[in-house]
Amino acid sequence: MIICNALTRRYDDITAISDLTLTIEDQEVFGLLGPNGAGKTTTMRMLACLISPTAGDATIGGHSILDRQGQQEIRRITGLLPEAPGLYDTLSAHANLDFYGKLYGMPSSLRERSIKEVLEKFDLWDRRDDAVGTFSKGMRQKVAIARAILHDPTYLFLDEPTAGLDPKASKTVRDYIVSLREEGKTIVINTHNLGEAERICDRVALINGRMIQVGPPENLAKGLFARTLTVTLTEEDPSLAERLGTLPFVASVEASGARLKLAVTDPERTNPQLVRWLVEQGAQVQFIEEEEYSLEDVYLALIEESGRR
């Protein structure tokens, strides 16, 4: 479990992230979303014990990032994929991974086995002896991810894992992240790719120098937007919209031809009354559906709102 408690980091007089408090459960894929400069990378660096917080604390697997001994333990149980792959171009993929295997104290036989396993997973085993400088961007990113997971960490910090990858490579990485969760790993992802976050994250936190909102992607819209029902009639009825507006559970009505948009607060409870009322009014109802908001809608609305504050 990762617990952040009022985590704050300032660079001189600039506050990168302030009072970040959140809990990331084990075996969760957790997304950190936010615009450039929101403090996502700073947060990840603090959790990876690369930089220390100005205030606050965080624990990973019960080890504090403030404690020197704890930091060493955290480094052993975490894997980091930084923003840039940071590979040694003149060395082969195997040599790159072998170096990091040694840094994590992996014995030679385990190192060889793990290198083979991760390179095969990313279809790079046949290119293991080639210098990574000759690799495509996608291949380099795969080697960097392989490096992060080589020592079988319990917690993974992935900063923009699919940045610059083509759709096929992105899917490979996403599928792999999901499979890692199934293996019991806890994964924190920094991403700008909202679709990706929506697809693979169990929960996301929107941050912009501070925490804005946290929750499962599908729940973030709740409470942010009024819930909207779209009622499609077989034919236009101009007076129906006016009469609908008088119902106590309808906040507003917007008519567009035979289509009516109703803002409601609790559709699960009031929809049966609504349907009954429409039938009583003689309306010929074709469809009733609730409008869905994407994570992108939520993101843009929340970031805009946080910017206004």
Partner: peptide, 12 residues
Amino acid sequence: NKSLEPILASPT
């Protein structure tokens, strides 16, 4: 080369 970050994230 931006390769310091992964080294520093290791137990080194």
